[in-house]
Computed example of a mutant assay.
Amino acid sequence: MSGNAGVGIGRLIVRLLLEWILLAIIGVLVYVLYINIVFYLIPANWKSILLAYDSVVRSVIIVTIGAVLVWDTGRRISDYISGYDRVRGTVLKFVLDTVLIVAILIALAVTFEKFGLSVAAFSGTAVGIIVGLAAQQTLSNVIAGIVIIMTGRYKPGDRVTIVNWRYGITRVMYPHEGLPNGFTGIIRNITLMFTEVVSDSGWVYTVPNYVMLDALIIHRDVAPFKRIRARIDVPSSIDPWVFEERIKEALRDGRIKSVRVKVGETWQSTNIYQAIIEVLADGRADGEEIKDLVLREAVRIRNELGKQQ
């Protein structure tokens, strides 16, 4: 295990070094191309203006290459760590994204400062207005993401149901015994802005972090028990006490703690009644799988008892 890990770390370091060297070469080539364009292709009256912004061009190139390096390095390192610990990998990527944004803002502030206080003040005011108007939702997502990571409300790999009034769900016609009106899936990733969820149907949901912080989160994997209800129409000629005893015998399963049958009236016909089967199952059991088992056994027992009449 440690040998394979050592090989993996070695390959990761070599790949990162090669990428750093490649990006540094690209940055140098871009700057050389810019200088050649200024000296040989641009008219003389434009040359002095462009050369006055030479420090800005260099700063933009450095900031861009640095941002790409930090982002790619963080992504690769977090992916490597996620192979061993998904939570720590996600937290590391979250922290690196935050550091990257702060570093870019500082670099831009330093670049504007070179043009004097008036330009820096004007630029800072303009950026402040833009951020204040357009980035309110962004800041809400970032703050919510930090709270989610720090409190451990959920983590990658958790199977949860997300219930939030902002998102409606078109209900199917089959009765579901009052299940929560939410989206169920597995947390795949938590980024600076969004939480990615892979639904039970295979869809990938990208949910803003502030929505996740505001939502009701139902943790499916840590429930102490699951209560499952199934309904089936039974001919009134079948004694409900006999039906209950047979269904209890059939559902002797290590995942099932108890079984109880209730009788509900059916208004459409007097020849049948509705058997409501309540099962208390282990919290780690798959609820849909248990319900499928209950209904299959109920149909089989109903058919067998019906033939005996």
Rank of each mutant, 00 (worst) to 15 (best):
D158I: 07
E244R: 13
Y174F: 12
G152V: 04
L295R: 06
L139G: 11
M173S: 11
R75I: 09
L41W: 15
F194N: 08
V127D: 08
Y53P: 06
L216A: 11
A223D: 06
S237D: 14
G124K: 01
I218C: 04
I9T: 12
R58H: 11
R153G: 14
I146N: 07
R300S: 10
E113W: 09
F94Y: 09
K248S: 10
L139Y: 13
F225A: 10
T111P: 04
Y80V: 03
V222G: 09
V57A: 08
L108Y: 05
L17C: 09
Q274Y: 14
H176S: 13
A109R: 11
A109M: 14
V70N: 00
G124E: 02
E19P: 15
R166I: 12
A107R: 00
A134V: 07
I146K: 08
Y84K: 04
V279Y: 06
S237N: 12
I187H: 00
I169A: 09
D200S: 04
Y205D: 14
S199G: 07
R166S: 15
L295T: 10
R227L: 12
G157V: 05
A52M: 13
P208K: 00
L293D: 03
W203S: 15
I42W: 01
I21H: 00
F94Q: 02
I228E: 01
I35M: 10
R11I: 14
T98K: 12
A223F: 06
S199K: 10
L22D: 09
S78F: 05
S258P: 08
V32E: 08
N189F: 11
G116D: 03
L133S: 10
V299T: 11
K248Q: 05
V119R: 10
N4E: 10
R159A: 06
F183D: 02
Y40A: 11
V263F: 12
I187T: 03
R171N: 14
G66H: 00
P175V: 01
L251Y: 06
V68K: 00
A275N: 03
P43A: 00
V242G: 06
L12M: 06
Q309M: 14
V279A: 08
S2H: 07
F115W: 07
Y34E: 02
T266E: 15
D85E: 05
G3A: 13
L280P: 03
I256N: 02
K257C: 06
E177M: 12
V198I: 09
K291P: 01
S82A: 14
R15F: 07
I238G: 00
L69E: 01
A44M: 13
E19N: 15
G66R: 00
I272P: 05
L295C: 12
A109S: 15
L41A: 15
V14I: 11
D158M: 04
L100A: 07
G152N: 06
A230M: 13
I21A: 02
L96V: 13
R284Y: 12
V14P: 04
D282G: 08
T195W: 02
E113D: 06
I106N: 04
G145T: 01
Y167K: 08
I130D: 07
V279E: 02
A250H: 03
N36Y: 13
A52G: 13
P240W: 01
T195G: 05
W20N: 00
L213N: 03
K248T: 04
G254P: 12
K262A: 08
W267Y: 15
